[in-house]
Amino acid sequence: MLRYVYANDLHKFSDLAHSMFVDRADQFKTRLGWDVDIDQSGEERDQYDALNPLYVIWEQPDGSHGGSMRFLPTTGRVMVNEIFGHLTGGVPICSPFIWECTRFCLSRDATSKVAGALMLGGGEIMRNFHIDHFVGVFDRRMIRIYRAIGSSPDVLGTEGTGRDQINVGLWEFSPNSFDMVAQRAGIAPEISRMWFDRSFGGPVDQQMALSA
C-alpha cells in the first residue's frame, strides 16, 4: 500500500522508515555510486531530509519499504535550485504550483508494480493539492523506468555522461494521464483514493466531529 508521511511522522512507522533510508543507501551509494553520506545505521540521508519533506512510500506486505520518493515545495529550499541551479538556465524554479520530487528509490526486491504505484501517488498529490508540475533530479537509468510506467518527464537540463549523468526533469499533471498511470500500475483509482485519505485524514470520518 501507499503511505504519505511527513518526516516528523516517520517515527510512527519506524521499521518502514529505516528500511527506506537503508534502501536509499543501497540504490544511490552501492548501485549508482553517487557521492552520498551513509550513517552508522546504514541509512542514507541528506540536508533536505531535515526540512520536513513529504515522503510517498510503497509499503510491502511484510511492512518493509518497496519504493519511495520525497517532496518539497519550491517556494522553500530545494535541491534543484541550490545544487542544480546551473542546469535550469539560471532560473530558480519557484512556484506554489511546482513541487520538487527527489530520491526516487526502488528496493532490490520491488516488483514492477511499485514504480507505477509511486507515480500514481504523485498523481494524487497533484490533483488534490493543485500542483501542476513536479521538478526532479534523476539519473539516466530512471528515464527508462519512467517511460515504462507511462510517466516520462521532460528533461530541462543535463550534466555528465553515462553512469554519472544527472538530469533535471519536469512532470506535468493531466487528468487523463492519471487514469493511464492508474491502469498501468494495476491499481483501482478508488483504492488509491482510500490510501490517500488514510494518510491525510478522510473527509467523511471527520463529519461527526465538526457538527458535534
Binding site: Y6, P73, I125, F200, P203, Q206
Partner: peptide, 18 residues
C-alpha cells in the same frame, strides 16, 4: 498542529478533531 511545518492545503474536515 495539523499544518505546522507542512505544506499541503487542508480542509478542516481532514484534521483530527477527536
Amino acid at each position: 498542529t495539523g499544518c505546522f511545518q507542512r505544506f499541503h492545503p487542508v480542509d478542516w474536515k481532514r484534521l483530527d478533531w477527536t
